[in-house]
Structure formats: structure tokens, C-alpha cells
Nucleic acid binder design. Structure first.
Lengths: 243, 243
DNA sequence: CGCCAGGTTGATTTCGCTCAAGCAATGTGG
DNA sequence: CCACATTGCTTGAGCGAAATCAACCTGGCG
């Protein structure tokens, strides 16, 4: 499914809606022009892989629209979704900075468009614009904190608790409808991808969803979830065992 | 055990052995003088806590000698050792950059000396010396990669495999004696801290060590370990199930 | 229509946690 | 100096959560 190359499109950094949210918002007119000239935009479709784990890093990817999944696969073929990336996020900066191959894959989950910016351009901008480096530093530090939390959770919390937490996180972005304590959300992910996000097997995901149904914590129908009481998710998440 | 404040000592950044390995190696004479004047050095003893999870961040800590453990504790009291820090490592930069409280504790594991550098000094140096920011960026990106690997391992590998990997990592620093495939190492950690590093219970650590003994993979006596064949550790680590 | 990927469900197993006891080394106060 | 806590480590018994193996059931899609 991957690899069918999509048509290039015309996008303009100056009018890019996502730019405000990116690390690039600190660029001045000149720098913005440089990046605008150097970048290549293109559409991308679900299933497409922007870069594979192990690929040489040729530059970075800036998401204008759509959704990208960051996936990591170990030697035994276990696949884990390390995170989701949205418009304004910049991908691949880590491999670029470490000057090594990509350690993760970036896979399109929802159709959208991305811009590719070559290694040389990025390096030159970084060298000559300190505040750009600061933004990336800030970003890396934030990601680092989240990664450490995930490790902590994976070794201390049960699957139920981790799934509850995942739903709480997805809520912030996907809650379509909120009324005093009750929410409903449209998940952007398949069941297997949900499973991959908390590092469990698809079967276990199914069963955990079943449990939440039976316990009245949430109702699942396709990719839409209805949670009558957000508080119950919080209970599951933090109140591991309330005795 | 914590909190008995140790005597300040005199240390000079210019002659600091650890500096070559730090982010600060990019400082010029002037900056080095500023940091040298602003810093406060002191000895620290095992058990002492340099800063607690939840403390406000007042600056950063630079390790001149000794060993520091980075610990994170969740709401239920589960303690995990996220990493070890050595001479040349700089701690607390994350809380400082994010301008928030420390998310982890830094606990002295081996006697040594550290330098404390105030928030204002660090910020001013960062603002006015771009390459310092680049060094920290590089460092954060490296830590991020490691953190993600730990998450991946925790959800895919067995305890045996994770422990084998931990030994392989400790080997690089603590292998006291190597002869064609056989090594012996002096662990810097108690059993419970070893357990905390891979997110398991002390009892499980005991049993895993027992297994390694029984399988002839390693021999443990106190804190010294003898591994007749390093290859067997590698097998445990990557060859999860070879059938 | 057959095929296949995604999802659910059931039966079974296994790995690691919990609870509990015991033990050696160390410390501590009378 | 001994009686005693205390702390770190080990071991056992039992349990429970999640993985594994396997069947089956959809809903697209050629």
C-alpha cells in the first residue's frame, strides 16, 4: 500500500495555517522565504509511509494537514505506535540532528499534505537562527517527558488503567460533544492501532473494550465512543486499586 | 538519610576533569569565567537527594564526580530508576527549560561532588551562546531515543531479556576484566535498584538472577557478576524465542 | 462468489505480582 | 555484651493479568 507517490501540490509557507503551531513560527521574512523556496509539498494518503525505520534521513517533514503515526518495530516484528503527529508538527528532526538513520517510521493515518525540507536547508537555518534551535530543544524536552511517563505507566499500570488514560488523552483532541461529565468522541484509530499505542495485543484490546462496556464506563460502536462519566475514566486511570 | 547538607568545596571549572564531556565544553573563556563565578560546588553522599520530584527548579546540577540516580515515583509509590548519571552529565535542564517543577528526583548513589548553577546564569548563557543550546538539544534528542527504546522493550520483551540487556549496558561502563568472551563486572547498584531500572519487583529480580545462575549465563556474588560468555547475554536479549 | 483483513470470543498457558515467611548482615540501646 | 529492631535479599505458594493459540464472524472487494 505504501510508496505510491502522490502528486506534488502548491503550498505557501507564508499562508500556512499550521505554521503558527510549528517550531518555524520564529522565522523572520527572509528565513521564511528560504524555507518556502526550498520545501516540497505533496499530498499523502492513508497507508503511505513518509519514511521507514532504518531509512537514511534526508531532511524533515512538516505536517500541514492530516495525521501521521510514529511507529517503531522491534526485531521480532512487534509494532508499537509511539505517538501521533498533527498539523504543525515537525517529524524526523531527531534523525537529522543525530546525523543517523531514522529509528522510527512515519505512516500516514489520515489523508493530508506535508512539506519536505532538505537537510542542508534545515542545518543552515538552525545554525543561523538560535531561537529555532531553542524551539526544537523545547519540543524534544517535552517529548522526552512524555516518553518517560509512558515507560513508567507501562511497568506500573494495568491495561485497563493505561487504556483509560489513552482515552483521556484522545478526548482532548477528539471529543466531539461534551455535556457536564458526558462525552462522545470519534477515535481516529483502528482497534489494532489503539492496542499498539499502549503496547498490547489486539485481542487484549477487544477484551478491555468489552470490560469497559460491561462496567458501563464507555460504549463503543465502530470508532465512536460514548463516555457517560469522564470521572469514571479518571478513576480507572489513577485509582488503580481503591481499597 | 537525606538532607544532611554537605560542606561546600572549592572547584574550578577551568581545571574540571569532567568538563570535556559536558555540554559546557563549547563555552569560551569569558563564559567559563561567568559560570565558574556563579556556580556553587559541594560534596554529596549516597542517599542524599539533590532535588525531589515536585520541587521547584532553581537551576541545574553538573556532576563532577560520583554517580546519581534519576528516579521517578508514581502516585501509588512505585519507584522506577529512569537512568544513571555520571561525571560530565548535567541534570535538571529539562525542568529549567520547561519552566516547571522537577518531574523526577536526583539521588546520589555514589559519593562525589556536584556543582549547582543558578537558573539566571544558565538562561543568560543559553540566550547568548547558541552552540550551548545545540549541545543540550543533541543531548535531549539522545535521551529521547533511549526513553522510547525503554518503552518499546518494556512492552515487548520478557524480564529475562530486559535484564540481559541491562547487564550489557552496564558492561560498557563497569566491565572490570575482559577475556575473549568472558567478562566480570562490579555492579554499582543494589538488587532493588537493578529491579527499579527495568521496572520489576525485587522478588522478580531475585528469581531472574537465580535463573541466570541455574542456566549458567552469569554468576552473581554480592555485587560482582561473572559472565562466562557475553554471547549468551546477547542471545537472551535479542533471540527472545529461538525455535 | 471466494478471499482476506479486522475484529471478537473462547480455552489455555505463562509470566510476573502479591503475600508471606525466613535469613543474614548491620545497627542500637540498655 | 547481648536482646532487639531494621534492612536487604531470597524463597515459596498461589493468584491473576495478559499473551498465545485457535476458531469464527463479519464487511469490503477483487
Amino acid at each position: 500500500m505504501a510508496g505510491r507517490s502522490s502528486p506534488p501540490i502548491l503550498t505557501d509557507c507564508f499562508s500556512c495555517q499550521a505554521r503558527q503551531r510549528t517550531e518555524w513560527c520564529v522565522l523572520n521574512e527572509d528565513d521564511l522565504k528560504r524555507i518556502n523556496d526550498a520545501k516540497k509539498s505533496r499530498q499523502c494518503l492513508p497507508g503511505e509511509v513518509l519514511y521507514h525505520q532504518g531509512d537514511a534521513c534526508r531532511g524533515i517533514v512538516c505536517i500541514e494537514s492530516g495525521m501521521i503515526g510514529i511507529r517503531k518495530i522491534d526485531a521480532d516484528g512487534n509494532s508499537v505506535l509511539l505517538g501521533l503527529a498533527y498539523p504543525g508538527d515537525t517529524l524526523g528532526y531527531r534523525a537529522l540532528l543525530m546525523a543517523q538513520d531514522h529509528e522510527v517510521s512515519a505512516e500516514v493515518l489520515k489523508k493530508g499534505s506535508v512539506c519536505l525540507i532538505g537537510e542542508a536547508t534545515v542545518r543552515s537555518l538552525l545554525d543561523h537562527n538560535p531561537s529555532l534551535g531553542h524551539r526544537f530543544l523545547w519540543r524534544a524536552v517535552k517529548d522526552l517527558g512524555e516518553a518517560e511517563n509512558k515507560f513508567l505507566e507501562s511497568v506500573t499500570l494495568t491495561v485497563r488503567a493505561r487504556f483509560a488514560h489513552l482515552l483521556l488523552i484522545l478526548k482532548d483532541r477528539y471529543a466531539t460533544d461534551v455535556e457536564d461529565g458526558a462525552i462522545s468522541l470519534e477515535l481516529p484509530l483502528s482497534r489494532q492501532d489503539l492496542a499498539a499505542m499502549i503496547g498490547i495485543r489486539p485481542e487484549t484490546m477487544s477484551r478491555t473494550i468489552r470490560q469497559f462496556e460491561d462496567d458501563g464506563i464507555a460504549h463503543f460502536s465502530g470508532r465512536t465512543v460514548h463516555v457517560p462519566r469522564i470521572a469514571s475514566l479518571l478513576d480507572e486511570f489513577e485509582h488503580e486499586d481503591y481499597l
